[in-house]
Design a protein around this nucleic acid. Structure first.
Length: 812
DNA sequence: AGCACGCCGACT
DNA sequence: GTCGGCGTGCTC
C-alpha cells in the first residue's frame, strides 16, 4: 500500500506528493487526512496523507516506508483535503501551507533533535566542555532547549562532535497537542480497611490521621480527588498528602482534564425570541434552503440593531434539528464575551468557541470537540471557517465586509470565498450579514448571484441615532484650535451631568502623530521605515508603529539645533489628557493597542465601562464593534476623515463602514442616541450618507467611482509585492516582473507599476509593487506561477521577497 | 527548506 | 597541496 504524502517543506520543488510505503501495522488505520512522519532526504518531517493507492508510478525499489502514523482519526476530513486543493490553486500557495493553516496551532509540527553518544568509548574523545552531558549514558533530549542556554563554545564543540560522528543526531517531530493533566489521589483501601487503619493510627501523626478521616467521611471508594482541592478542604499540606502516598494508603494518579475556557461561568438559557415581520421575511428563504438542502448565498443587509443575530440563531436552530452543524464567523475584535454569551445561552454546551484569546491548548480542546462531534456550532474568527464538521448545514459570516476575513499571510485566502465553496460542497446556505455590506457582495446581490435580504428597521422600533456633522474648518475659522468642537464638548458635559455615557472614537493611538521642528521643518522619522515616529507620552518616547523602533525625544532639533520642536497631530493619549484638563472629574477609559496588550485587559475595560464605572470610553478601531450598553447616548467621532485620504481604493468604503459602525453604538436601547462626527470634509459622500443612514445612496456613488477608476467590483486585481534591503534589486526585479506581465497577458488587461508602496520602506526593506487589473484573464495564474518559479531560487538564497495576492484587500 | 555534491581562490 | 566559498540539484 502506498501513501501519497505532502511533506512539511514549503518550497516550490517539494510542493507535490511523495509516495511512501505504508507498513503493515498502519494499513488498517491509515486514512487520507492523517498526519504522518516520514524520512525525507536526510531529515525527518511531518506530512499529510492526501491519498492511498496500491501502486506507485515512482521507481518502486527506492520507495521508503513512512515512519509513523500520528493520527488514528485523521484531523482533516476528505472535504477539507479537497478544499485545501482549491485554496492552493486559488491563492497560489504551497499545498502544505494550506493544510497546516486548517489545523489548530497545537497540532502543527515542531522540529527538534535528540543527541546521543554513538558509543561509550567515544566519551573520552569528547571535549571537556560537553562531556558532562553524556556521562553515565545520559542523552541530550532536546537540542532546541539546550541550545538556548548553552554557551557559545559548548555549541561549537557539540557541532564538531556531531561532524566527527562521536555524537549521533536523531531528528524529532513533535506537536504540542497535549491534554492538560492534574494530579489526583484516591484511597488505596476499602472503607473497612481504612477504618481499621484509622483505629490504630499513631496519634502523633495528627495531620495524616485527619486526612485519612477526611477520606473516610467524605470520599466514596474509587473516587479521585484533585490534590490541590484536597489540601484546601482537609486543611493539610502537600507534604502530608505525599506522606500517605508513600505509605501506600493513597494512590497518586494523573488525570486528563478537558480545559474549558468558560469553566465556572454559568449561562442562563434563552429561547428563540418572537421575530418582527422583517426578520421573519429574512428567515423564511433561509429555512427553505436548509430544508431543501440547496446551496444559496444570502446577503443579509440589516441596519445596526435590526436583530441579525436572532435570525442567525433561529436558522441554526433549524440546522441542529436536522442533525447538522453550523459555523458562525465573527470578526476577531467583535468576538466579545457579550457575543459568545448569546450563543452559549441559546445553544448551551453544544457550542465551541475558537478565540484568539484562548491558549494554544484551549483552542485545541475546542477544535477537538468539533472533530469528535461533541458540538454542533462553532463560533470563531477567520480560521474557524476550517472547523472540521462533516455534515455542515449552514455557514454564517457576520459583518461580512470586515477586512479581517482576508488573511494577510500565505495562504492569502478570504473566509467569505472559502465559506461559499464549503456551502456548495455541502449544499447548504451561507449567510453574509452586515449593516454595510462590502461593495463586492452587494453588487453580486443586485445581480442576483446572491439572494438579497433586507432589514431596515431596528428591533422594538428604536430610532436610528441622529447624526450631526461638525465642520472643523468652521471651528478653526472661529478660533477653536483644539481637537474638540464646542458642540461635542457641550454634548459630553451634558451626558456627564445626566450620568449617561459617551463613546469617543479616534483611529490613532499614541500621543501625537509626528514631531516637527518649526524652524527647519525637520520631522522625526523611523530610521528603518519611511514613516514618521509617534510620540508616546507615558514613557516619553518616539515609537514606530510599523517596526516597534523606539527612541527618546530630542530636546533640540538634530538638524538645526533650535529648540522649536513641536508636537503635531492627535492620538488617543493626548485626547485623554486634554479631556481630563477640561473636565477634571470626568472618568475616562482609554482602549487602544497600548492599554489592551495584556491578556484579558480588553474584556476587563469593557466590563468596567458596562458597569458604569466611567463616563467616557475613548478608543480606536477596537471599540467600533460589538459594544452594546444601554447608557451610551452620545458617540463622538473626532477625526472622521482620518482614513478617507489613504492611498487605497477602499478608503471611502472603509470610512463609511466605520462611521456607520461607530454610530451604531449610540442609543441601542430605550434612550435616544446622538452621534457627532467631526470632519474637515463634510461634503464627501461617505460622510453625508452616514448622516442620512443611507447605504444605498453610498453604494451607488461609490460604484460609479469604482467604475471610473477601474477597481473592484468592476475589475479583478492582483498585486505583486517585491521587497528587499537592496533598493536597486527591488527596482530591477519589479521592472522585470512588470514587463513580463505586459508581454504575457492580454491587451485588455492592464499592468500598473512598478511603483514604490505607500510606505516605501519598512524594517529596512524597500517595497515596490505591480498591480494587475483585469476582467477575464485565463493566462494570469500561469504567468504568476512563472514569476514564482523564476525567482524562487533567488528568494531562497537572498533576502528578496515576492508576494502575490490574487485578491488584495489593502494596497498599503 | 536543508543538505550534499561540485568546481574555483587564499591559506596551513 | 587543502579548506571553504556558494551555484546546482534532489528529496518518495
Amino acid at each position: 500500500m502506498i501513501a501519497k504524502v505532502i511533506v512539511d517543506v514549503a518550497a516550490n520543488q517539494t510542493d507535490r506528493v511523495f509516495d511512501y510505503i505504508v507498513p503493515d501495522e498502519f494499513r488498517e488505520t491509515i486514512a487520507p487526512g492523517a498526519r504522518v512522519t516520514v524520512s525525507f532526504g536526510p531529515r525527518k518531517v511531518q506530512g499529510f496523507v492526501t491519498g492511498l493507492d496500491e501502486q506507485s508510478n515512482y521507481s518502486s525499489k527506492k520507495l521508503k516506508e513512512l515512519e509513523n502514523l500520528i493520527d488514528l482519526k485523521p484531523p482533516l476530513t476528505k472535504e477539507l483535503l479537497f478544499l485545501a486543493e482549491w485554496i492552493k490553486n486559488d491563492t497560489l500557495s504551497f499545498h502544505i501551507s494550506v493544510l497546516k493553516s486548517m489545523l489548530p496551532a497545537a497540532m502543527r509540527a515542531k522540529y527538534d533533535k535528540k543527541l546521543t553518544l554513538v558509543s561509550k568509548e567515544m566519551l573520552s574523545k569528547l571535549p571537556e566542555t560537553i562531556k558532562p552531558f553524556f556521562e553515565d549514558g545520559k542523552t541530550l533530549d532536546s537540542w532546541e532547549e539546550w541550545r538556548k542556554k548553552a554557551a557559545e563554545d559548548e555549541k561549537k564543540d557539540m557541532m564538531k562532535a556531531v561532524r566527527q560522528e562521536l555524537v549521533e543526531v536523531t531528528p524529532l517531530v513533535k506537536t504540542n497537542e497535549t491534554k492538560k493533566k492534574q494530579l489526583v489521589v484516591r484511597s488505596a483501601l476499602s472503607k473497612e480497611e481504612l477504618k481499621a487503619v484509622l483505629d490504630d493510627f499513631p496519634s502523633k501523626a495528627a495531620k495524616q490521621k485527619a486526612l485519612l478521616s477526611y477520606f473516610y467521611d467524605n470520599v466514596q471508594e474509587d473516587v479521585r480527588v484533585v490534590i490541590s482541592e484536597l489540601m484546601e478542604q482537609a486543611g493539610v499540606s502537600r507534604q502530608t498528602v505525599q506522606e500517605l502516598v508513600n505509605k501506600e494508603y493513597l494512590l497518586k494518579e494523573e488525570q486528563v482534564v478537558s480545559r474549558d475556557p468558560f469553566e465556572g461561568r454559568t449561562f442562563a438559557s434563552s429561547s428563540p425570541l418572537p421575530l418582527m415581520d422583517e426578520q421573519e421575511e429574512a428567515l423564511t428563504p433561509v429555512i427553505d434552503s436548509i430544508v431543501e438542502e440547496r446551496h444559496t448565498t444570502f446577503l443579509l443587509r440589516g441596519v445596526t440593531g435590526s436583530g441579525k443575530t436572532e435570525v442567525y440563531m433561529q436558522a441554526i436552530d433549524q440546522v441542529i434539528r436536522k442533525g447538522k452543524e453550523a459555523i458562525v464567523l465573527v470578526p476577531e475584535i467583535s468576538l466579545t464575551p457579550q457575543m459568545v454569551t448569546r450563543f452559549k445561552e441559546r445553544f448551551g454546551s453544544r457550542v465551541a468557541v475558537l478565540h484568539s484569546a484562548l491558549s494554544k491548548g484551549e483552542k485545541y480542546d475546542e477544535w477537538l470537540k468539533i472533530r469528535e462531534g461533541k458540538v454542533d456550532v462553532a463560533v470563531g474568527a477567520r480560521s474557524a471557517i476550517f472547523a472540521p464538521f462533516e455534515n455542515l448545514g449552514i455557514i454564517i459570516i457576520d459583518e461580512e465586509h470586515e477586512t479581517s476575513y482576508k488573511q494577510e499571510e500565505t495562504p492569502r485566502y478570504h473566509a467569505r470565498q472559502v465559506a461559499i465553496k464549503r456551502g456548495e460542497i455541502y449544499n447548504c446556505p451561507v449567510i453574509l450579514g452586515s449593516a454595510t455590506p462590502s461593495l463586492e457582495s452587494y453588487a453580486r446581490a443586485k445581480k442576483g448571484v446572491y439572494h438579497l435580504l433586507t432589514m431596515e428597521n431596528r428591533v422594538n422600533h428604536v430610532q436610528m441615532p441622529e447624526v450631526t456633522l461638525v465642520d472643523m474648518r468652521e471651528e478653526l475659522r472661529e478660533g477653536n484650535r483644539s481637537m474638540f468642537s464646542r458642540e461635542l464638548l457641550e454634548g459630553i458635559e451634558a451626558r456627564f451631568k445626566k450620568k449617561e455615557q459617551t463613546v469617543l472614537f479616534l483611529n490613532r493611538r499614541g500621543y501625537s502623530t509626528f514631531i516637527m521642528c518649526r524652524d527647519c521643518g525637520y520631522v522625526a522619522q523611523c530610521p528603518h521605515c519611511d514613516i514618521s515616529l509617534t510620540y508616546h507620552r507615558y514613557n516619553q518616547s518616539l515609537q514606530c508603529h510599523y517596526c516597534g523602533h523606539s527612541e527618546t525625544i530630542p530636546s533640540i532639533c538634530p538638524e538645526c539645533q533650535s529648540d522649536s520642536i513641536r508636537f503635531f497631530g492627535t492620538g488617543t493619549q493626548k485626547v485623554e489628557e486634554e479631556l481630563l484638563k477640561l473636565f477634571p472629574d470626568l472618568s475616562v477609559i482609554r482602549m487602544d493597542v497600548d492599554t489592551t496588550r495584556k491578556k484579558g485587559a480588553h474584556e476587563r475595560l469593557l466590563k468596567q465601562f458596562g458597569e458604569g464605572k466611567a463616563d467616557v470610553l475613548l478608543g480606536t478601531q477596537m471599540i467600533a464593534k460589538g459594544l452594546d450598553f444601554p447608557d451610551i447616548t452620545l458617540v463622538g467621532v473626532l477625526a472622521a476623515d482620518s482614513m478617507l485620504h489613504l492611498p487605497d481604493f477602499r478608503s471611502a468604503e472603509r470610512t463609511f463602514q466605520l462611521l456607520t459602525q461607530v454610530s451604531g453604538r449610540a442609543g441601542r436601547h430605550t434612550k435616544k442616541g446622538e452621534v457627532m462626527v467631526q470632519t474637515y470634509t463634510p461634503d464627501h459622500y461617505s460622510i453625508i450618507d452616514v448622516k442620512a443612514h443611507d447605504y444605498l445612496s453610498f453604494f451607488e456613488k461609490e460604484m460609479s467611482v469604482r467604475r471610473q477608476g477601474g477597481y473592484p467590483p468592476y475589475y479583478f486585481l492582483a498585486l505583486i509585492h517585491v521587497s528587499d534591503e537592496r533598493l536597486d534589486q527591488v527596482i530591477s526585479v519589479s521592472e522585470k516582473i512588470a514587463s513580463f506581465l505586459n508581454r504575457s497577458l492580454s491587451k485588455q488587461t492592464m499592468v500598473y507599476g512598478p511603483v514604490a508602496s505607500a510606505i516605501p520602506r519598512i524594517k529596512d526593506r524597500y517595497r515596490y509593487q505591480c498591480m494587475v487589473k483585469y476582467k477575464v484573464e485565463p493566462k494570469l495564474t500561469e504567468a504568476l506561477q512563472e514569476i514564482i518559479k523564476t525567482y524562487q531560487g533567488e528568494m531562497a538564497r537572498t533576502g528578496l521577497s515576492i508576494t502575490i495576492d490574487t485578491n488584495p484587500y489593502t494596497m498599503l
